[in-house]
Amino acid sequence: MMLEIADVDLHYGAAIALRSVSLQATRGEVTCLLGRNGVGKTSLLRAVIGAHPVTRGAIRWEGEDITRLATYDRARRGIAYVPQGRDIFPLLTVAENLETGFAVLARGARRVPDEIFDLFPVLKTMLRRRGGDLSGGQQQQLAIARALITRPRLLVLDEPTEGIQPSVIKDIGRVIRLLRSRGEMAILLVEQYFDFARDLSQSIAVMERGAIVLAGRAEELDHADVRRRLSV
C-alpha cells in the first residue's frame, strides 16, 4: 500500500511553504525527507496527517483521496504521527498516553500488546508516571509506542532523534529497522541527521525552500551532494 503526495502546494496565509511537492512512501520501506531548518519538511508532514490544509494538489493513501479528510479520520485509516517535540499529553500518565491509542481500535482489541514493552522496556517501569515528567528520550519512546498502539500502516516520524542522547537514538533506530523489516507499514521519516537516515532508508528526498530538489533510492544518490544541501 502506498502514500502518494501529488503536486501539493501549501500556504500559511499569504506565504507559500510547499511548492508542487510530489512524494511516495511504500509499504515495507523507510522513506526519508531531508533538509535544513525551515525548508518545509514539517509542513509536508502536517499536510499528510491533515493538520493543515493544502492549497493545491492531492494526497492519496491506499488508493483513497484523503486530501480533504480530517486528521482523526486519517488516523482511523491507519496513519500514525510522531511529531517533532513528541507532544506527549503532559498530565496523562504513561499508561493513559498509550491508551489514547485505543480510540481507533475495535473494542475487543483495546489492550497494550506486550510487544510494545519488548520494544521499549523502560516504559513498563513508568506506567504511573505523568507524561510531562519524563525525560526527552523517554518521551520519544513513549510517542513512538503510542503511535504503534494504533496498529498503523503508515508511520510518520518528524525528527525523532532531535535532542535525544545517542544511546536512545540507537534504540530508536533499531525499532525503526525492526518495523521496516516486518514489512507491514510504510514509514515516512523526516531527519536532519543524514547518517542516521542513510542507514535506515530505502528512498530519500531532499527539500529546499518548499520544493523537492533531489530524490531517489538511497543507494543511487550522491551522498556528497546531499550533505552539501543539508549543511548551513
Binding site: 496565509g13 511553504a17 518545509g40 514539517t42 493543515h52
Partner: peptide, 15 residues
Amino acid sequence: VAALSEVPATKARAA
C-alpha cells in the same frame, strides 16, 4: 484585507 482575517488556530510552525 488579509491582515484582518482571523489567524487560524493551528499556527504556522517553522518547517
